[in-house]
Design a protein around this nucleic acid. Structure first.
Length: 497
RNA sequence: GGGCCCGUAGCUCAGCCCGGUAGAGCAGGCGGCUCUUAACCGCAAGAUCAGGGGUUCGAAUCCCCUCGGGCCCGCCA
């Protein structure tokens, strides 16, 4: 019970109150509070009353006090639980002069309390609970943030997300929305017969995407292991194993910088369907996103970006051919026939800096990012990429030099990526070797066992993957991925030890 | 990795250009108030001006370094 030596006056006052309660044999951190009703229900019941009318039914509510307004012989507390806010009205008439005084002595804004009372509507019409008993459930020693402006300091919001959350209902709502999106995607896929699986995050070779992996060490194996950068390769092994429709939702890790659309640890959804191709995945994505947009708009009318989501995800989405779009927007022609040197020159001209030894696909992507990506505001499928940039996709059935692939863009951001999956083990081995030979800063790692799996025969299949975080951004209108990820990586502060 | 910007009380912010005793609101303390809702009124208190160094008679303010954060660019299919 000894206060830390650096406790501020504010904290010391609250510690003193705890001591006073204990001296009076009142527990400031009791064990439970049974039989509570969400505040929203009391609000509705009290809202049906006439001003100054008291309801007949008793309720118990619990939550955090966000404001305390004292009036001598009475007081108004604002209490907030997950369902919303509710005003508590405390009067000496119900609590006794001594009872009210004790409450006001011991309770501060920010405390977690439980209250019992009847529904009541104030003279001004505010739905309230007329309190006849109020109990402290957890004393807050730190004072809450400023009640009107809340927490603005972005560093504080990052380092202590719980402070942001407890002060900001908007912030909490965003994560309720996120949960709705995850659940909606899961139910959609399950409804289409996909089996949800989990595969390891610790792998020997982080494959399935060109990205820098995090490295760590396994004591058990006494070997270096890596954190996965994609879900793709283990899930396709499951297709080899006879699972026909599988999906996974899980974290992948890419050892790269953080910005408004990238975060090193993020949540990926990938789904694979045997006896399907990328066109089937396209249809699924269109239906999934348009359905999610409607759900989100219905459940989150208080989030402006969510309300407009259904209009942004109206079906059918646009479609453009990768090469046609690039040639049209750039004014360049015969892009696939250009030499590596020509492409390098063109890429430099648009300000892209790429390592000199990068594979040719990198330059197509750079040019596309520069000329086309910013124009893809409405949901748009970009189809049939050059083969060189995509070693895990099947070559196009009718367009030479291309693969069967789409990326879904919205708001100039890549949302989803899908292929007709390459299932020819000989060609897969060749593509991996070409990637390794052309190795730039990063490349697709060679996963020998994956090729071995394909040699047992993988059915023709379509696969799709998308970042949950970016999907939530698109559906909520969030400006930054930081607004939709609860805990972000942040540098530790210098400290003792 | 490069450029620009920010760090003042628990929180939200003034003060910095142009150097001269560190300010307000909220929260907290004391007093008043039985219908407020950013409650109100009065009194008192609360600061390592991110940290370190320099210039100066004098630095929150000017200069340098460090730490932390933000935005943009680069990197990240």
């Amino acid at each position: 019970m000894e206060p830390p030596p650096d406790a501020s006056r504010l904290e010391q006052d609250r510690l003193d109150k705890i001591a006073a309660m204990r001296a009076a044999h009142v527990e400031p951190y009791p064990w439970t509070f049974a039989g509570r009703t969400p505040t929203v229900i009391v609000r509705v019941k009290a809202g049906a009353l006439n001003p100054e009318e008291t309801g007949t039914e008793a309720f118990r509510v619990a939550g955090r006090l966000t404001a305390v307004r004292r009036h001598g012989g009475s007081a108004f507390f604002d209490l907030e639980d997950a369902s919303g806010p509710l005003q508590l009205f405390l009067r000496a008439d119900e609590l006794g002069a001594g009872g009210l005084r004790t409450i006001l002595e011991w309770i501060d804004g920010g405390d977690i309390v439980g209250a019992t009372g009847r529904s009541y509507r104030t003279r001004r019409g505010e739905p309230s609970l007329l309190v006849d008993e109020l109990q402290l459930l957890a004393k807050a020693i730190h004072p809450p943030p400023e009640k009107y402006h809340g927490v603005k300091d972005p560093e504080l919001r990052l380092r202590q997300r719980y402070v942001d959350l407890l002060a900001s209902r908007e912030s909490r709502r965003m994560f309720e929305l996120r949960s709705t999106v995850v659940q909606g995607a899961r139910e959609f896929l399950q409804g289409e017969g996909f089996l949800e699986v989990e595969t390891p995050t610790l792998v020997q070779v982080a494959g399935g995407a060109a990205a820098n992996p995090f490295l760590t060490h396994s004591s058990y194996l006494d070997q270096e292991v890596q954190l996965r950068v994609a879900l793709e390769l283990p899930l396709k092994r499951l297709l080899v194993g006879g699972m026909e429709r599988v999906f996974e939702i899980g974290h992948v890790f890419r050892n790269e910088d953080l910005d408004s659309t990238h975060v090193p640890e993020f949540t990926m959804l990938e789904a694979y369907a045997a006896y399907a191709d990328y066109r089937d995945m396209q249809d699924w994505m269109e239906r999934l996103f348009s359905q999610l947009a409607q759900t989100v708009a219905r459940l989150f009318p208080d989030i402006p970006g969510a309300v407009t989501a259904p209009e942004r995800f109206l079906r059918p989405f646009g479609t453009v051919d990768f090469v046609e779009a690039l040639e049209e927007k750039s004014g360049l022609s015969g892009i696939l026939d250009r030499s590596l040197d020509e492409l390098k020159t063109l890429a430099r001209k648009v300000g892209a800096t790429v390592p000199a030894e990068s594979p040719i696909g990198t330059f197509y992507d750079k040019l596309f990012d520069h000329y086309v990506t910013p124009t893809l505001i409405e949901p748009t499928f970009v189809l049939d990429h050059p083969a060189a940039s995509t070693p895990l996709a099947k070559r196009h059935r009718s367009k030479p030099g291309r693969v069967e692939r789409f990326e879904l863009y919205i708001g100039g951001v890549e949302l989803a990526n899908a292929y007709s999956e390459l299932n020819d083990p000989i060609e897969q081995a060749t593509r991996f070797r070409e990637q390794l030979a052309a190795r730039g800063v990063e490349s697709y790692a060679m996963d020998d066992d994956f090729v071995e799996a394909l040699r047992y025969g993988m059915p023709p299949a379509g696969g799709v993957g998308f970042g949950i975080d970016r999907a939530v951004m698109a559906l909520s209108g969030a400006a930054s991925i930081k607004d939709v990820v609860l805990f972000l990586p942040i540098r530790r502060l210098p400290g003792p030890g």
